[in-house]
């Protein structure tokens, strides 16, 4: 359903530009590898021209495979970026949160990697669907990932830099949990206590609570607004 009523606020624009910058940076890296492989093929052709060093078919096949691998990576990234860009066109709808988590994980891969964090997503036991604006929900997930990465940046050295994302088992009370290997002094339910984060949570009628077991927090749908 097209969106006629919402344009992102400044925080939303910042989120969009952060992901755009990360994606375009990744694209440049894919192009750089394709460029070097094309260059290597050129080098081999130059050496083969005088007949002394014929092109090894296995080597050529390997280079071709490496180019194809980068093209596939770039293609996947562009598809994800296209889905992300179109999230702004859409109005309120029922959104599959597992799909949104995978989309954020793919698009923010570079950002997550820069924190040296490894993110895993466990399949939802029941569909995790939330009524809301797709763009805002993606924004909220990204913010949760950012917050966990920041906690891990400041964690003791022996902490495993891993974020495990999982989903609740009650389809009527959807929740997305972000679990890590360390505690935080700030208190799990106060992590989103900034005006920007509170506004974001309000827009999607969600709240944050400490995870039932272990270290982490869950994004939960407010019961009365479902």
């Amino acid at each position: 359903m097209p969106n006629h009523d919402l344009s992102p606020d400044r925080d939303g624009v910042t989120f969009f530009s952060t992901l755009s910058a990360a994606v375009t940076h990744d694209m440049k890296n894919f192009l750089a590898i394709i460029n070097e492989n094309a260059g290597l093929l050129g080098d081999l052709a130059v050496r083969a021209r005088n007949g002394k060093f014929p092109i090894d078919p296995q080597k050529a096949a390997l280079i071709s495979e490496k180019i194809r691998k980068q093209v596939n990576r770039a293609d996947e990234m562009i598809k994800q970026f296209n889905r992300f860009s179109h999230s702004m066109d859409r109005s309120q709808e029922v959104v599959d949160m597992e799909e949104m988590v995978h989309l954020v994980a793919g698009l923010a891969e570079r950002i997550i990697r820069h924190h040296e964090v490894f993110l895993t997503v466990t399949s939802a036991p029941v569909p995790c669907r939330i009524q809301g604006h797709r763009f805002d929900l993606l924004h909220l997930i990204f913010r949760a990932v950012e917050i966990t990465c920041e906690i891990l940046d400041n964690a003791p050295e022996d902490t495993q830099k891993q974020v495990a994302v999982s989903f609740g088992s009650d389809p009527l009370l959807p929740e997305i949990c972000f679990m890590i290997d360390t505690d935080t002094a700030a208190g799990w339910d106060t992590l989103f206590d900034t005006s920007k984060n509170r506004a974001l949570l309000d827009r999607v009628n969600m709240y944050v609570k400490k995870a039932g077991r272990g270290c982490g927090f869950c994004l939960c749908k407010t019961r009365e607004t479902q």
Binding site: N29, A32, I33, E36, N37, G39, L40, D43, K66, K69, Q70, R113
Partner: peptide, 16 residues
Amino acid sequence: DDEKDFLDIMSERMQA
């Protein structure tokens, strides 16, 4: 560079 594929191919071309 953190991209292994980039390291491999660049080092091969530079060595050549």
